[in-house]
Nucleic acid binder design. Structure first.
Lengths: 230, 230
DNA sequence: CAGTATCCGATGCGATACTG
DNA sequence: CAGTATCGCATCGGATACTG
């Protein structure tokens, strides 16, 4: 990327983090996705080459450190102190986006894997069932091949599964993808969705009762949109 | 720009303001440069085509409004409420940049016009002389053809001139470009620079005494750099 | 001066193939 | 799985020329 040619710190910051995808990668690292594949799940449209390239650039710039993982192959990418201090910028962008550009979500933005991946990271561990529990999400408006997703809960770990695990789910969440995304993003009341049956829960009563309390919703769910008047 | 394909407000925000130059244009509008040419002064390396394009995109996105100027040709570009609310993001980036990427300034980032343009907008109007006053800045390390710049003060207006106005300057500021930039950005003490003679003032004693108090310095001058340790 | 249209070269990026 | 190298296309953007 060519330089902005300025001594202004805003442009110097943007020379490091202003490229396409970079701040989104930092968002992923901020919210706890440290591995190449985890980041990729959170950014379905990024190509591996670009992700690799950006991680290298961030490492060279001193915002990210790459650590070998003793347990297996691959690396962990961790923000340095400098990288972590971008948190207010990322949050600021998110709040601004929620306030001012939250329009009707386009269908191509309703990505179920992304949604599940986000949900996975924002469950209230304290309230999850103590014993291993399999939860199935069923988006009945999607083609069968991509309509079902599983969260395998083994407190405090939660794993996302894209194919049916062996066990039977003990709780099923059935809804439309758009409904779940809107609830998740705070665009629609969760209480209403549950009580109206827009989200149907099936399974052990103990679990169906508790489920709404597990869902913490997206970090930005409670930022309210404003009108567009200038 | 292709979409990020996400429902996350951070990515939706970046679809509007994540392109190269866009946040810098918003910075210019935030700090009071409203006309095409004024913005261009603050962004010497942007091409007119790109600036035009970005302003149109910002207008279409509802962040900028274009107003005809009764007094003459051209337009004023003004931030809407949505655009103004990006101020914390721009400031956040600037503070982060000042803290973490403030390295030795590269020579090609030392742009005298940019510096003068920035100074022009950050003079303490209250303290400026009441009568019309011409101040000349002389960067003695630059080639003669681009070493001298003038601020024509007619309180509360300050005009930047790139060629010699008719009148004689009543105050001359003589220094190296790097010195002036470093002082301006808070990388070097202004008091030291004046008292050591790194910045030399010549002219009416009343003006040479008052000059240091006019200079408000860059908005980010007092954000302190930190070490790079992760 | 304040932009806008056109053209052409640079580069950014996705697809594919390859490696530990 | 977790990346990396190569390639070819598409888009971006700078230069130039043009207009109110």
């Amino acid at each position: 990327m060519p330089s902005y040619g300025q001594f202004c710190p805003v442009s110097q910051a943007l020379e490091l983090v202003g490229e396409r995808w970079t701040l989104l990668i930092i968002r992923e690292l901020l919210c706890g996705n440290y591995r190449f594949g985890e980041i990729k799940y959170g950014l379905p449209l990024i190509s591996r080459s670009v992700l690799s390239q950006r991680l290298k650039a961030l490492e060279a710039a001193g915002l990210v450190e790459r650590h070998g993982r003793p347990e297996g192959a691959g690396f962990q990418y961790r923000l340095t102190a400098a990288g972590r201090e971008l948190e207010p910028v990322v949050t600021g962008l998110g709040e601004w986006g929620k306030r001012w550009v939250q329009r009707q979500l386009r269908s191509d933005e309703l990505d179920p894997i992304l949604l599940m991946w986000d949900i996975r990271r924002r469950l209230d561990v304290e309230r999850l069932p103590a014993e291993p529990t399999l939860v199935m999400f069923w988006f009945r408006d999607l083609p069968a091949s991509r309509s079902r997703y599983w969260l395998s809960i083994e407190r405090p770990e939660v794993e996302m599964c894209l194919t049916a695990p062996g066990a039977e789910p003990r709780l099923t969440v059935e809804t439309k993808l758009r409904t779940m995304v809107e609830v998740w993003m705070g665009l629609r009341s969760a209480d209403d969705a549950f009580s109206s049956g827009a989200i149907e829960l099936a399974g052990e009563p103990r679990l169906t009762r508790a489920f709404p309390s597990w869902l913490l919703l997206n970090v930005l769910a409670d930022v309210r949109p404003l009108s567009r008047a200038g």
